[in-house]
Design a protein around this nucleic acid. Sequence first.
RNA 1: GGCCCGUUGGUCUAGUCGGUCAGGACGCCUCGUUCUCAGCGAGGAGAUCACCGGUUCGAAUCCGGUACGGGCUACCA
Length: 446
Amino acid sequence: MFHVGGARSALFNWVMARQSGGTLVLRIEDTDASRNSPEWTEGIIRALAWLGMDGGEYEGPYFQSANADKHVEAAARLRADGRAYYCDCTRDEIVARTGDSHKGYDGHCRDRGLDPAPGRALRFRTPDEGQTTVVDLLRGKPVFENAVLEDFVIARGDGSVTFLLANAVDDISQGITHVVRGEEHLSNAPKQQLLWDALGAEPPVWAHVPVIVNEKRQKLSKRRDKVALEDYRAEGYLADAMRNYLMLLGWAPAGDREIVPWDVIVDEFRIEDVNSSPAFFDVKKLKAINGDYIRALTPEEFAAACLPFLEDAPFDVDPAVFAALAPLAHTRVAVLSEIVPMVDFAFLPEPPYDEASWNKAMKEPAAAILDGALAAYRDAPWEAEELKTRLEAVGAEHGLKLGRTQAPVRVAVTGRTVGLPLFESLEILGRETTLARIEAARARLT
RNA sequence: GGCCCGUUGGUCUAGUCGGUCAGGACGCCUCGUUCUCAGCGAGGAGAUCACCGGUUCGAAUCCGGUACGGGCUACCA
């Protein structure tokens, strides 16, 4: 599962690296073994590739867990330097003392001089005074009072090192100069800077991009919102469209443009121009942009892009028939998966049955129209324009315009009240099938 | 509660050096093209730029305060 917010951060990082000639490094932060798996990182790599970032675009992936020795060594050094101390407090004890589960650690073990032992965590001793200033490309220079920074855990009771320290160690050894990540990490920045400093290094430049929110203005979350990039891909969103849309969240190209080629984005994007307020992930707009990208495809590209969705459909596709149908569907599809219900009638043995459509179209002169169509089509030259002219004539006998006349025929043949241009569809379907379906519908009407 | 961040039409944004009819896009509505639906074309509604005060001839743009929203506050990352 790759979160769309993570995708956006990755895109920002990528663009910045390309602009500066720097290197993007992909690091899998798997310091918590229980939350990681090979499939997880597989998914991330596949998602990045889909967005255009294949292995050549970044360095890595590096697995943070592979550097565990270095992390442990750094933790030991901090402790030897008096910058960290062991603590045997449990969460419950801390809450009991502070009376508030959100108050942070109270420094109980600071000067107890505890020796390392299984179960004892190592905490970083934050300065009691002074302040830490974070240089952030989007937010200026947020200042944090060191006194309000709690003594956070850098190594767990089992000796393994946590995210904050592991990151600092790896960032330093990998020569990281810019850290672009979600705003939810902003409060981690001062802690990490303290660590960089304690480890004797100059902190990087940060850029905390605003979170992406849902309609209720809350950070997009895996459990209540649709956030997996893979899901959008599976629905038929194009990578180019997704990429363009993600970049539009908090930023826009110069002038009155929104839909622009990736090259333009790489050329014009400036991280410092990104809006610093949260942006709503508007699927409606994503879909509109996706439709634009789909329409920009050539007919061949469009047909090819539809194929995977048709393969999963509950019917077998005749390639020649689909090739004929695809151009008719091209402007009507905003998300690739929509192709299935649009062409299914041509491949199913029977047209799909939709009750609402049937009831709407099969009203009064319907039986007569179907009879008329049957008679008119029996010996008609099988060509769209001719089929249209003949049905028009049938409608005229009942004083109806084509708009009304075509409805029963459309439902009889395709099962639905809306769909591809009817007469072209009939031409492709063929006389035999068309007549059989109209007859079947007519029979149901008596 | 504490710390930090934020606030331009419903939504995403333009606006960066104070003087614009506050522009574009999505969505919504209307009309046209039309065999349905899309698409395409043309219009429209919708913003006293969160609020209050200040500086100024003039503020969305500068300053102060208030309100509201969000993020974080784990031996997760």
